[in-house]
Design a protein around this nucleic acid. Structure first.
Length: 231
DNA sequence: AACGTATGCAACCGCATTCTT
DNA sequence: GAAGAATGCGGTTGCATACGT
């Protein structure tokens, strides 16, 4: 739609005044009909520009801090699975925008992947990130309580138990959409046929809970994409 | 101090898809 | 069901700042 004569559309960085006006208009009219909203607000911006500004900057509950190691791991995992489906990846990271993830990928992760080069090393990035999250004391992947107090025979009954046991709260998972999936999955491992067991070769003298070998649960870390899939 | 380069991020653009009339 | 409008998405660009020489 061409701008009215004498109403040149503005481009470039948003002013604080424009942000306030946009936020007020969205509160009044809702997140839809952006062209109408742009006109009604008196902003000399396109609806498209208003929508983008709202989604990427003004929307409530946006996280402004740097992406965490956990989020980086998720991005790497999901990008491997889905490719450049930024909006899809963003839906699995509450408070993050597709633009932010896309930028982060281009400035951090893509280069990181390129430095190591090749598919095999790409895998190692995920593996390294995984090691940041999980304790590496067993030759199978293991998760241990952050305080090291794993008592043989203890039951994991609730998601809180599981979060406590596995220290999920340390990873920013608690309260996120994947908390339920993660805890469900861990519960399944606890009681399912594969079982969670003390690995005999574990060098730790303490009891630790280890995932079964890849063979016995029929997959690898890569197969766990469903944990993050919110669709 | 001045200049050139690298980096991070916000915003724009064009196209595809979905919605509304 | 068709056409136009609105929205969503991914790629790209431009600018401010940090950093190195």
């Amino acid at each position: 739609m061409p701008p009215m004569q004498g109403e040149e559309l503005r481009k470039g960085p948003w002013l604080e005044e424009e942000d306030k006006r946009l936020a007020a208009s969205v509160a009044l009219l809702g997140e839809r009909r952006w062209d109408s909203l742009a006109k009604a607000s008196g902003l000399r911006r396109t609806g498209k520009s208003c929508r983008l500004r709202w989604l990427n900057y003004l929307r409530p509950n946006l996280k402004r801090d740097r992406l965490t190691a956990e989020e980086e791991t998720i991005i790497l995992q999901l990008h491997k699975q889905w490719g450049n489906k930024w909006s899809k990846i963003a839906r699995s990271l509450p408070g993050r925008t597709d633009n932010e993830i896309k930028n982060y990928w281009r400035s951090h992760l893509r280069r990181k992947a390129a430095q190591l080069g090749g598919q095999g090393n790409y895998q190692s990035i995920i593996s390294n990130a995984k090691q940041d999250l999980l304790t590496p004391e067993c030759d199978t992947v293991s998760l241990r309580s952050s305080n090291g107090e794993c008592n043989k025979g203890d039951s994991l009954r609730t998601s809180d138990d599981i979060c406590d046991m596995f220290g999920l709260s340390n990873f920013g998972i608690v309260g996120s959409p994947y908390e339920t999936r993660m805890t469900d999955w861990l519960s399944h491992l606890s009681y399912g046929p594969g079982g969670v067991y003390h690995h005999g070769d574990c060098q730790s003298s303490e009891l630790c809970f280890c995932f079964p070998s890849e063979d016995s649960y029929g997959g690898s870390w890569d197969s766990l994409g469903f944990l993050w899939d919110t669709e």
